[in-house]
């Protein structure tokens, strides 16, 4: 059961990485700071608002991530795990893309 849970967050992170692979680093950096601030205060509404906006702007790449998020059923206490999985996915994609 635990291992499955682990997988869930791991795959979410992978999808987030793929979704933002082609975005520019400056853009990603802006989103990351916004997402981090939303997570810090535990503001789920704001977090998903920022994320959804970013995904809409990059609709083609974000399809898998959107599917994954909608598949995951999470409780309030898991929000932290979900948000940081996405954040770390974006951080990794940022460095893969290289600097502008």
């Amino acid at each position: 059961m635990d291992e499955h849970q682990d997988d869930k967050w791991y795959w979410l992170k992978e999808k987030a990485k793929n979704a933002f692979m082609n975005s520019s680093d400056n853009y990603k950096q802006k989103i990351l700071f916004n997402l981090l601030n939303a997570t810090k205060t535990g503001d789920q509404n704001r977090f998903f608002n920022i994320l959804c906006r970013a995904m809409v702007a990059n609709l083609e790449d974000s399809r898998e991530l959107a599917t994954k998020i909608s598949d995951i059923s999470f409780k309030n206490k898991d929000f932290e795990k979900l948000s940081y999985s996405i954040i770390f996915g974006i951080i990794v994609s940022k460095n893969k893309h290289g600097g502008n």
Binding site: D6, W9, Y10, K13, Q29, L36, E80, F88, I91, N95
Partner: peptide, 25 residues
Amino acid sequence: SKELINKNGKGKEKLIELYIQKNIV
């Protein structure tokens, strides 16, 4: 995370990110 966003360490940050994701998050 805020500190790691600006780091580019030739793959090292990827290791750290994996470590944090798995063992802390």
